[in-house]
Each structure stands twice: as C-alpha cells, then as structure tokens.
Design a protein around this nucleic acid. Structure first.
Lengths: 248, 248
DNA sequence: GTTGTTAGGGTCGAAATGACTATAACTCAT
DNA sequence: ATGAGTTATAGTCATTTCGACCCTAACAAC
C-alpha cells in the first residue's frame, strides 16, 4: 500500500485538509413558544465566496486530533463548549472549491440554549434558523441539510435530544426538541410512556414552579454524559448503540 | 475562518491524507456450510509496521474524489468492483503512525462471493476471516472492528445484505448473510415473514434445482442498485435511511 | 414405498404503538 | 370564591409487531 507515486508528486497533488463544524442549538420562538433549530455561521472574509455565510472551520493543526480541532472551531466562533460533538462526514468532491482541491472533515455539535443565548454575535458571526440557512458558501448548503438528516436519525434512535437541554428539563421541553427536529406533532401521553421505559432519564423530586398551569416535574439525563465523545469510534461506541431503527 | 496561521507553517504541519478500504465478502465454510465474513489485507512492504498486514489503501490522488480513490484501492488490490461502497469514518488521532501525522479516510465495501473467489491472492495480498484479523498495522484492528459494528447496524436497518449476494438468491442464503453478520441464529419462518413485507426484494418464478431437498425459490433485489453510491451524502441519502438501529 | 431434510405457510401470546379519554393541579378572569 | 382554560399525567383499547412454535410440501437417498 501507500502507492508508488513519488513523494514530491504526492505533495504537489495533496489536497488541503480542513475541519468544519455544524453547530445546532435550540431557540424558543417568543411568539408561538415552539422550539426551533438554529446554527451559527461566519461570514467569509476572503475569496472565494467572499462575503457569503459559511460553516465555522479552518485548517487542521498539526498537534490536535480531528475532534479537538472541531472543538476549537466551536470555541473560537461561539465561545462555548458543546454538550455533544460527533464526526459527520468527510467531503472531498473535486469541485467543492474553485480555487483549490479541498477536503473537509465535518463535525456536528449540539449546544444548550442558555449557552447559545450567551454566545457572542458580531459582524461576522451570526445565528440563523436552520430552515433559513441557504445560499451558503461552497457546498455548505448540502452539508447543513445532511447534518439535519443525521440529527433526525440520531434523535429517533434515542440518546441525543437531552444534549439540547440543560441539566433539568420537563417532558414538555424534551418533547419540544423532538417536535422541532422531527417536524411533526407528538402525543404528550404517548411520548411520556415511551420515555418512562428504558431511556436514560430519571424523574427528580422537583417541579417547575411559576408556569400558568399545573407545575410539571423536572427530569434529568442519567446516561453517559458524553460531553465530547472520545476520538476513535472504538471509544465512542459503548456510549452509542450504533446503527438505527428497523424500518423492516 | 481559515485561521491566521501563515501558509508555510500550515504546510509544514499539514498531516498526510490517505484513503483506506475495508472490503468485506462472504465465504461459505465447506465443512459446516455456514457463511462467514472475510476481508483482504495487504502486507506492508515498508516501514513502519513492515511485514504486518494492513488495510488496502494509499494516498489520495489530486484528480479523484474520495469515493473514486476508495474504488481504485479496491481494483488495485482485489481486481474487482464492489457492489456497495460507503464512507466509514475519518481517523485522525495524533498517534496513529509513529513516523508521521496521518489522517485516513476509511471506506468500507461489500463484494459478491463469486468475485471474492476470483480475486487474486498473492504473496502480499491475502484474504482473512474477519474474526482472525488481529495484530494489524497501525490502528487497523480498531478500524476493522468498527466497520463490523457498522455493518451490523446497516444490516439490521435493512438494505445492505443483498450486496453480498448475486443477482438471484434464496432466502436461506440471505438468512445466512444475516446470521453471519449478526452472529446469531434467526428463525427461518419469521425471517421469511419479515422480508415478505416492505423490503426491496421480489420473488422470481424460478427455483434453485439440484439441491437434495425441496427446491427453494429464487429472489432478486429490486431496490436502488447503488453499485457505488454517489459522492456526496446528499445524493446518497435517498437510497439509505441514514443512522442506525434502536437499542432504546 | 420410507426416511431425512429443507421450504414455506400458519398460529398464539407477549410487547409495542397510536388514538383517545379521564382526572389532577395549577393560573386567571370574573 | 368560583368557574374556565390549560397543561400534566394516568389509563384504556384496538392494531400491529415479533418471537417461539407447529405443520405440511417437496425434494433426495435409500
């Protein structure tokens, strides 16, 4: 292996390698009270695609793992730590960038709403509704669409919705996450029944006071608190279950 | 984005980028008649890990997509075309190779048994039972384990088992694939019932003659004949369902 | 013929799921 | 204070799914 192309030739052809990150957060619409998915984008300050919005990213440092590079992107653009960070896909089409051959390893992350609200916004960093994120630089439109697709898959599978929320949450909030991601209404009673069994959530003895209706009980996530899953998939697997629901 | 590190520094740090491929094929044990998963490995002919077995792979050419590079690896090592080829994961740990910083984008492929039998074997290319593939070069042990994990996920989900078989197959053969991958016995009657509904298989009007028992009917796969899924995930998604099975 | 073995169809109960009803607990308007 | 409105939470019921199991059909070998 490691073919016979000589080294100088290989270097000459070597595509640049970059890391990009799709960062999802939930925001509650003040009007309808419904949860929506948002993500931060950065404005391109150089060619190509100067002035367009793009996913946060940059070159891979020589002393950091892929995961670390993605986490660094996150810190640098939004000043916050993700509650979930996973590799999405490596994009390497020939025509991704007009100026150079570019291979991007893309990660996707979930952050909590409190953090998303605190995240700085500036001239060149702004949050967008996921459904409004179009016309991005490079092939980032497709990447965002794919990340949403994958988010749907993961959330149906089960153990990712909690990472959108804080340490304590009501079942209605959790259901709001599911509804925002899946894009359909879920029956509150059935949703409750499904979560009572299995999944890594536990009821606390507290309730959320101050609402205008019956105070809902607060729950916590007790599963592997995979702040940022370990580098290799080998280490990541025990926390997940890998693979998905049986459409049969 | 695209940080402020200057270009020369970035080049100096730039990790090498390689493509590797995990190629799975099914072989039937002549003794027990059970199906087993095999994969081809190549012997390292240079340092590091000289003499050890490793996944087929090599550098990414400047004029080929990631997918094309993986397909080329396949051709070059086994002289055969895969019936299925998908990106597995990008591995980029700091300590993967002792001699250099190496990022590997790994693909996994399925090939048909007839093809696997025809595939050349040589001094430096040999097929191994997946369960016997240990002590490989670099972190390839972990990569193979992860590929098997993902294969299990995909097969439970549904649409990948056919790619191990030829154009026409019996349900017993298909069940053999599932049993080899999942590592457990499946009830023939229930298996039949599940496949009768939904999945992209159709009964032909032919039966397989020549066995010593009742001749089984032959079936075909009618789904998207995803010989080699399109480059971007966007194009790949309609054929798949993305994500994995529900451990709940 | 009989026997052995696999193909393929069916039954039955347990478990999961979706649609729905009912009651509890709170706030707010009157 | 009382009732209306809203959400939380429990329960019911019919349908579907799934695993375990049984039975008959169709071949080869003897």
């Amino acid at each position: 292996m490691y073919s016979s192309a000589n080294v100088s030739e290989r270097q000459a052809q070597a595509p640049s390698l970059a890391i990009s990150t799709v960062i999802f957060a939930l925001r509650t619409d003040p009007g309808t009270g419904r949860s929506e998915i948002w993500l931060p984008l950065v404005r391109r300050i150089r060619q190509p695609h100067l002035g367009k919005w793009a996913l946060p990213g940059g070159p891979l440092g020589g002393r950091e793992s892929l995961q670390d590079a993605a986490a660094r992107n996150l810190r640098e653009t939004t000043k916050l730590e993700p509650t979930y960070l996973e590799q999405l896909y490596a994009f390497g089409g020939l025509d991704r960038s007009a100026t150079q051959r570019l291979v991007s390893i893309v990660y996707w992350a979930l952050v909590r709403p409190e953090q998303a609200d605190l995240a700085r916004e500036s001239e060149n960093v702004q949050w967008f509704r996921a459904s409004d994120a179009a016309g991005l630089a490079f092939d980032h439109d497709e990447i965002v669409a794919y990340a949403l697709e994958r988010l749907r898959g993961k959330i149906e599978y089960g153990s990712v919705a909690y990472h959108f929320l804080g340490a304590r949450f009501t079942l209605a909030q959790l259901r709001g996450v599911y509804e925002a991601v899946l894009g359909r209404h879920l029956d509150p009673a059935n949703f409750r029944r499904q979560l009572r069994s299995a999944r890594d959530i536990a009821a606390t003895d507290e309730v959320l006071q101050g609402g205008r209706n019956r105070p809902p009980r607060l729950y916590t996530y007790t599963g592997p608190h995979q702040e940022t899953p370990p580098p290799g998939p080998a280490a990541r697997l025990p926390a997940e279950g890998q693979s998905a629901a049986p459409p049969s």
